[in-house]
Design a protein around this nucleic acid. Structure first.
Lengths: 139, 139
DNA sequence: CATAAACCTTCCAGTAGCTGGAATGTCAAG
DNA sequence: CTTGACATTCCAGCTACTGGAAGGTTTATG
């Protein structure tokens, strides 16, 4: 029988977050001690570790909730999980491409800024370059 | 003299967002028509375009606010801007590395999942793999 | 003149995933 | 008896918006 702080130490998930997970239904309502303190067992630690691992893989709480709900109903969620994983990989690849592009733009901007002389009147300022660059989103 | 909808069309920034920017002080309170409608001029469009460009470069509203405030005080914010740009580039590089790592992990997981047989009893399920993998954040 | 559509206004609430803090209760040690 | 370390609930805030309700204004049309 664990108190919330012990469960927290065991799993690395802050107590505050554990309560939050309970609030949103990701964890079932915890048993309570006579003093209303939450009481946990090993299987709670496992569930929490699963959540933490999935979060580390950038699964959303909603996705995790779906997977856990399937498991709670004793349905193997593998197919679903595999779909999520695939779509995550796709998203990550897209995001990486976006970031590469963004980095490229910022680098160009930075280099251009380096070449500008000091100008108190702001006729030449990186700001002006910003106006010109980065006009791609929401064209 | 532009109404908010026209300014929106001109800049590609939703009217709702323009009001929001005013609320948080990124735009000065707009002049009002007799009917309380907001009225804008060309220079508002420019300021808004600057904001939009900087957002496209992933500057936070706070960073943008700082830059604009400096400009409003007729101080060239170049040095500050250059610092922001540099730190953004650093962050982006770090983020890309994170995402590459994450993608790698997900790919390994996916491939392992592919090789698992159908198992109604969930003894072999990607879920179990998740428990083992992704235990890197918040060790 | 009534009415509809297309504007505009304000204000409240919600998104994700927590985190901080206040006010309060419980428990063990000195 | 008090101090400290736990726990509890509830409310608010973070980012950058976005949706929607409830209402006012303007213009066009029947």
């Amino acid at each position: 029988m664990l108190q919330i702080g012990e469960l927290s130490d065991l799993t690395g998930v802050p107590a505050k977050t554990i309560r939050y997970y309970e609030d949103i239904g990701l964890l079932p309502p915890a048993r309570r001690d006579d003093n209303h303190y939450r009481l946990y067992e090993q299987k709670d630690a496992e569930r929490l570790r699963f959540i933490r691992s999935a979060r580390a893989l950038d699964f959303s709480l909603q996705e995790i909730a779906q997977i856990l709900a399937a498991r709670d109903r004793h349905e193997p969620p593998c197919g679903h999980v595999m779909e999520i994983i695939q779509s995550h990989i796709d998203e990550i690849e897209a995001r990486i491409r976006e970031l590469e592009q963004l980095k490229q733009e910022l680098t160009v901007l930075y280099d251009a800024g380096q070449d500008l002389p000091e100008d108190v009147h702001m006729r030449s300022c990186v700001c002006n370059l910003i106006q010109i660059s980065g006009t791609k989103k929401g064209n």
